[in-house]
Design a protein around this nucleic acid. Structure first.
Length: 261
DNA sequence: TAGAGGTTTCGTCAAGATTC
DNA sequence: GAATCTTGACGAAACCTCTA
């Protein structure tokens, strides 16, 4: 995580798929007898990351912003997913309403392998039958699209991988991608093809490989997007945490002042 | 500057998930 | 249930950084 957090700094980059992106701050009205501390905390993310603003939770005419434990909504998801719960009375404001608790709880007895994939600790200690056994141990996680859809935002756009056309026995598959820079692959299915007369199996295999290649690219793109989205959320939450700590400090000071008077 | 070591990217395989 | 999609794992190649 190389995100940078700064107070009252300049805004960061352009928007992303993060539903929290560009979380705005509601202007706080003030009343004379209460010290209203409105500190805008702004974070700047390194690349293509949105800026987010978190307004101080100290607001006029608000009895107490220190919430009791009963106000905290604990949300637990089965596989370490992240969820944002909207709650009207929340003091953290965003453009999309309010945010409440975010909790990430790993399943008990879960280890993370060197590849970043989790597995149970009994099964990880098994040393027989290398690859296949290892694969079988791993439980499949839900797709990134599914995760983001479950979160109710940041839908990942589905870009069609390629267009398959047939033209007189000559099949054309247009492939676009960052790595390849775009390519047209053609393969013949009739006997007139001069140099390349693939058998059906070979042709099917090539087509499958081509599709899978493109699918892998797309999958990696979505994964990057998903990770960026999570990083943004971490930054926003760190920001909120910071604001709450500041607020607590202010309240303590205020309390001490009133006590001494 | 060579090269050793680390990181990133890509293609492929395999298997679970999804669609029809 | 077959076909297709999705994604973790793996290895290879390219790329980057550091050191002698």
């Amino acid at each position: 995580m190389d995100g940078m957090v700064e107070e009252n700094g300049s805004s960061g980059g352009a928007g992303s798929a993060d539903p929290l992106a560009g979380a705005g701050s509601a202007a706080a009205s003030s009343t004379p007898h209460v010290v209203a501390v409105t500190s805008i905390v702004q974070l700047t993310l390194p690349s293509q990351a949105p800026s987010a603003q978190v307004q101080s939770v100290i607001q006029p005419n608000q009895q107490s912003v220190i919430q009791t434990a009963s106000n905290i909504q604990s949300v637990q998801l089965p596989k370490g997913n992240v969820i944002l719960v909207s709650k009207p009375s929340s003091v953290i404001h965003t453009t999309q309403g309010t945010l409440q608790t975010l909790q990430i709880k790993p399943e008990p007895n879960t280890l993370v392998s060197s590849q970043g994939q989790s597995c149970s600790d009994e099964s990880c200690s098994d040393d027989e039958g290398p690859k296949r056994k290892y694969r079988e141990m791993l439980t499949r996680r839900p797709s990134y699209r599914k995760i983001l859809n479950d979160l109710g935002g940041a839908e990942i756009a589905v870009i069609p991988a390629g267009a398959l056309q047939t033209d007189g026995g000559l099949h054309t598959l247009a492939v676009s991608g960052a790595g390849s820079g775009g390519a047209i692959v053609q393969y013949a299915t009739n006997q007139d093809a001069q140099f390349y007369v693939p058998e059906d199996q070979t042709r099917k295999r090539e087509l499958r490989l081509l599709k899978n290649r493109e699918a892998a690219r797309e999958c990696r793109r979505k994964k990057k997007e998903y990770i960026k989205c999570l990083e943004n959320r971490v930054a926003v939450l760190e920001n909120q945490n910071k604001a709450l700590i500041e607020e607590l400090k202010s309240l303590k000071e205020l309390y001490c002042q009133q006590k001494t008077e």
